[in-house]
Simulated scan of single mutants.
Amino acid sequence: MNNGQTGAEGADAGEPGARRDGARRGAAPRPPARALFQRVVVINGLVFALGTLVLALSPATVSSPVLLAEVPVLLVGLALMLAANALLLRRSLAPLDALTALMQRVDLLRTGDRLTDSGHSDLTHLIDTFNAMLDRLEAERSASSAHALAAQEGERQRIARELHDEIGQSLTVVLLGLKRVVDRAPEELREELHGVQETVRASLDEVRQVARRLRPGVLEDLGLHSALSALSSDFSQMSGIPVTKSVQPDLPALGADVELVLYRIVQESLTNIARHARATRVEVSLATEDGRLTLRITDNGRGGAVQDGAGIRGMRERALLIGARLTIDSPPGDGTRVRLVIPDRSATS
């Protein structure tokens, strides 16, 4: 009984409506096991009582011993009682099937999937408790994801600074040293030294590109529009896939967390396209639709993304941080469409 009362208090704390209903009833809800037991007993009792009443009022009689002609009457009565019992029990226990199906498909990265109570009063407490558990797990998952992603961003910035300030500067010093060596080197060695010089210069460019991908300084300095333009330009240069970018000029003011989520989702989407899509065209759009900020990334690749990989799950986690909804449509042979919808309260700073 104590466990049932504790669970009831947890569910009531998460559901104000349930708390008010419990206060009106003036009693704590029954534990689910006891309520289910009582429901089965009541249903069976009603069926047997109804069967007894029908036999008592009907003209049918049963001899002792039972005559062969009376066997069909008994079998029909038994069949009717069993059928009525099965029908009533099936209707009464239907919420358990729905609850089992929800348990099998629930995903904390796809929020809002809940079981609604359809008037089965004995199972209301079980349904409310399960829904409250999902609310708690989603809140805890969102909080832990926020901490993890914040730590990840901090680590990215640290690595980007080290790449830029230490490795980048060291390679720059090497380039300057090579230039002095080339100027004093014999003619027969200059061509070879020029090759080494170009290799170091290419390595320096790669280090700078990695640092930009890790820490989008242009996002902090010039804003989201310029950051998306630079990201699209770098992607087209590296992959050879043209990107058509469309950003609404009069976007609402965005918070730094929203801008970073938008940037990272576009970045991850373009990375997935370059690795897996085999696309020849990409479209990126950011605009307000029906009062909500909507980001779309569309390609004409092979599609067919069935399972979420680490990259897509990371995109879903980022979307949850700002209360946005991420949907990915990837029919085989018809490209992939990524859509992020940000509600008004999350889009504004």
Score class of each variant (00 low, 15 high):
5 Q>D: 12
6 T>L: 08
8 A>D: 04
8 A>L: 07
12 D>P: 08
13 A>N: 00
16 P>N: 02
17 G>L: 00
17 G>R: 01
18 A>M: 04
19 R>E: 03
35 A>G: 06
37 F>A: 14
39 R>H: 13
43 I>W: 07
48 F>T: 15
52 T>G: 14
52 T>Y: 11
53 L>D: 01
56 A>G: 03
57 L>N: 02
64 S>L: 08
66 V>E: 02
66 V>D: 01
70 E>V: 01
74 L>N: 11
75 L>N: 05
82 L>F: 14
85 N>M: 13
88 L>N: 12
90 R>P: 01
91 R>Y: 02
95 P>K: 15
95 P>Y: 12
97 D>K: 07
101 A>V: 03
106 V>C: 06
107 D>T: 09
108 L>R: 09
108 L>A: 15
111 T>Y: 01
117 D>Y: 10
119 G>H: 04
119 G>Q: 02
122 D>C: 11
123 L>F: 14
125 H>G: 01
126 L>A: 15
128 D>S: 00
128 D>V: 00
131 N>V: 07
133 M>N: 12
136 R>Q: 00
136 R>A: 07
136 R>N: 06
136 R>Y: 00
143 A>R: 13
150 A>K: 13
160 A>N: 03
163 L>C: 01
167 I>V: 15
168 G>S: 07
172 T>Q: 15
172 T>M: 14
173 V>L: 13
174 V>R: 13
182 V>T: 14
182 V>Y: 09
183 D>F: 15
184 R>P: 00
184 R>V: 15
184 R>W: 14
187 E>T: 13
192 E>C: 12
194 H>A: 13
198 E>P: 07
210 V>A: 04
211 A>W: 06
215 R>F: 02
216 P>I: 05
218 V>H: 10
220 E>F: 13
220 E>T: 11
223 G>Q: 13
224 L>A: 02
226 S>L: 14
231 L>N: 03
233 S>L: 06
234 D>Q: 08
236 S>V: 10
236 S>R: 09
240 G>C: 08
241 I>C: 06
243 V>Y: 09
243 V>N: 05
244 T>W: 00
246 S>F: 03
247 V>T: 04
248 Q>L: 00
249 P>L: 11
249 P>A: 04
250 D>Q: 14
250 D>L: 07
264 R>D: 04
264 R>I: 06
265 I>M: 04
267 Q>S: 11
269 S>M: 04
274 A>S: 15
278 R>D: 14
285 S>C: 07
291 G>Q: 10
295 L>P: 02
296 R>S: 02
298 T>N: 02
301 G>D: 02
302 R>M: 02
304 G>T: 13
305 A>F: 06
309 G>M: 06
313 R>I: 08
313 R>M: 12
317 E>P: 07
318 R>K: 11
320 L>W: 01
321 L>M: 08
322 I>G: 03
325 R>E: 14
328 I>K: 00
329 D>K: 07
331 P>D: 02
333 G>S: 05
334 D>Q: 05
338 V>M: 05
339 R>S: 07
340 L>I: 04
340 L>W: 14
341 V>H: 07
342 I>G: 00
345 R>L: 07
